[in-house]
Design a protein around this nucleic acid. Structure first.
Lengths: 203, 203
DNA sequence: ACTTCGTCGTGACATTTGTCATGACGTAGA
DNA sequence: TCTACGTCATGACAAATGTCACGACGAAGT
């Protein structure tokens, strides 16, 4: 019997996936949480074998939760199940020690198989997504450029970003200019959008 | 027996919700589609009683699909089931003739009840969401301001927006300035973000 | 008929944003 | 040690953006 932990901030989706997987004879959902920072404790107390983690969650994102599990409770393997197939997410997830990566676009019948393969110690990654992730390469952005783009994405002006990060306005503009060049964007907000779509803006 | 149609672009979520609702004795999922523009035909050929519609879908959004159903096949009632509780969405959905509005945050056990109430001819709207939607009021943006913000949100510069909409650059800047004032934003991209969060930018 | 509103346009102006050159500092690798 | 890179900063300049005043047209309501 494979013991499962579900982590997704949308209760309805979480419950629905639970009922889907509970149909399988060899799978058993033993814990459900709605926040990333509750994953580790729940995995321990429920002795879960596999954790299905959404990326977007309050408290801690699913990739961070996978990293925690890998370090603190490695007997529970992490399978990322997310809406967005951002190329950067796949890379980050695998670097964080996740065993698999599945997008919510995949047919529902395949999820149980993915869980079984992960439980058996294999890696499961959507082939198309893996190729895209490999082709896209790692984030070209420096740490500061990433910070600045995250702040810009909230709708802040460059002056506001400067005071938030305790930088001069000129420095922010320099980082922005560099990020615009690297992303091939035409202005700051487009650069932030492109970076987000590539999964380069994980806090 | 209540006959259900599911429309959601994420196959995994769609299948999971199907397995959740199929557990109920009086509910039966008779059709599933992944695009908004396939809803009407599927509802007709499957003689569905209730359609569960996601808002974000390719082809046609769920609110547009609800409008189609209301006009072309009114015996099938529409229940919007979406990730985002944007205030404007609730208003638009009800104006389009939808019978209910549920966010994916709600506990999975309540979905079946919502479906039954809709099937019985009642309206179902999350009370907190209904209040928020009423308090927020309708969109203050004119049609053109909305067009401009939609184009801006893609990362276009005001010049590019002008040529896309066949307007002069000055006119675009005027519409933008007006939209910035109405949204309380500090620049164009923040205005676009605020408008989107309020559900004012449905194509 | 009059007013209001949205739409579209122009021109002028201040501010913001993007680019570039330049320099300093620290870290990491060759 | 030398080099490369990221970080932070300044100053100058061009381009884009935001604001304002003004006018014209048509649709809708009084």
């Amino acid at each position: 019997m494979i013991r499962l932990l579900l982590a997704d901030d949308q209760a309805l989706v979480r419950g629905a996936i639970a009922s889907l997987l509970d149909l399988e004879d060899d799978l058993e959902v033993v814990a459900q949480v709605g926040r990333g920072d509750e994953v580790l404790e729940a995995a321990r107390s429920s002795r879960a074998d596999v954790a299905l983690l959404d990326v977007e969650m309050p408290g801690l994102d699913g990739i961070g939760a996978a990293r925690q599990l890998k370090v603190e409770y490695p007997s529970c393997r992490a399978l990322i199940v997310t809406t967005f197939g951002r190329p950067g997410y796949v890379r980050l997830a695998l670097e964080a020690g996740a065993s698999g990566f599945v997008v919510k676009d995949t047919p529902s019948g395949q999820l149980a198989d993915a869980v079984r393969r992960v439980a058996a110690g294999h890696r499961v990654v959507d082939p198309a997504l893996a190729a895209e992730s490999l082709a896209a390469g790692p984030s070209p952005l420096s740490a500061r450029e990433t910070d600045v783009l995250i702040a810009i994405r909230q709708g802040n002006s460059s002056g506001e970003v400067a005071s938030q990060l305790h930088l001069s306005e000129g420095t922010v503009r320099n980082h922005l200019s560099s990020a615009i060049g690297k992303t091939g964007a035409r202005n700051a907000s487009e650069a932030a959008r492109i970076a987000a779509e590539n999964g380069w803006l994980l806090a």
